[in-house]
Simulated assay, not measured.
Amino acid sequence: MIEVLAPIKTERLLLRPFTEDDVADAFAFESLPEVARYLYNEPRTREDCAAEVAKRREQTSLRAEGDSAVLAVELDGTVIGYVLLTWLSEQHRQGEFGFVLHPGHQGRGYATEAAAEMLRLGFDGLDLHRIVGRCDARNTGSARVMERLGMRREAHFVESEIFKDEWGDELHYAVLATEWRSAAR
């Protein structure tokens, strides 16, 4: 159990709970069609972003199965994305993580740097056994991030659901705690 997530400082980033002051930064990337393309939501309006930031401000603890923690990814005082960890099963010690990053900041290793901290939080903070990540099969950037993190592709589900009015494929990745800990970090 993790009661309240404290800010996490990486080499270049600060991962921290969202504040009400983050709405404009969130809107700057969550309103973009290329960000929403692989997410279940459409591009967000400013009001949508305000509602999401308010919800994320409450998602700062992992007390029980089903809880999600969401952290803002801050670079030089600006929120450029977010990362999340969901506690899927206490009995089976399973979790799921995810990440979203402003397209203007992609390709520089920020997503990998931030997402690695969510894996570390799951394995070291919650003592999870296994963490999974999922992405649309067309989202090659997210797939590469998970591969760089040492995750293995376990499945490619073909036309597994109707996503934004068309059949979509989904990739599933996973890493075990023993694999995570044995890799050079």
Rank of each mutant, 00 (worst) to 15 (best):
L62N: 03
A143L: 09
R148K: 15
D169R: 11
A155I: 13
A183Y: 02
K164R: 13
M118W: 00
H92V: 03
G133R: 05
E30N: 10
N139W: 06
E96F: 06
A114I: 06
A114G: 02
N41D: 11
K9I: 03
F123M: 05
A64Q: 15
D21M: 11
D165S: 13
R130T: 08
S68I: 01
D67G: 07
T19I: 12
A116N: 11
A28S: 14
V100C: 04
R108D: 00
L39A: 09
A137L: 01
S89I: 07
R63I: 08
V132N: 04
R37P: 05
P43A: 09
D22W: 05
F18A: 07
W87H: 08
V132P: 04
F99M: 04
A72N: 09
R12Y: 09
M146Y: 15
L101P: 03
F163L: 01
G81S: 06
A184Q: 09
R181V: 04
F99Q: 05
A143D: 09
A72P: 01
M118G: 11
R120V: 11
R138D: 04
G150V: 07
Y40Q: 12
G81H: 07
M118T: 10
A26S: 10
C135M: 13
A116P: 02
A72T: 01
L62S: 03
L128C: 06
D127E: 15
A64L: 01
W87Q: 00
T10S: 12
L171W: 13
D22Y: 04
A36Y: 02
E52K: 06
D76H: 15
R16K: 01
N41P: 00
L149C: 05
Q91W: 08
P33Q: 03
S61D: 11
R148G: 03
D127S: 14
A24G: 00
G122R: 05
A54C: 03
E20C: 07
E117N: 04
G133N: 10
E52T: 10
R57M: 15
E42N: 10
T60V: 14
V70M: 04
A137C: 15
A64S: 02
E159R: 13
E11P: 03
Q106C: 13
F97Y: 12
R134D: 12
W180C: 08
D127A: 14
R57F: 01
E47G: 08
E3Y: 05
R152T: 14
V23Q: 00
Q106R: 09
E96A: 13
V23I: 15
A143M: 14
R93E: 09
G104E: 13
A36W: 02
E161Y: 07
E20G: 15
E11V: 10
Q94E: 15
R44T: 00
F18C: 02
L119W: 08
L149P: 02
H105C: 04
A54E: 15
S31M: 13
D165Y: 10
E90H: 10
F163P: 06
E154T: 07
T112C: 05
I8Q: 08
T112E: 07
G98K: 05
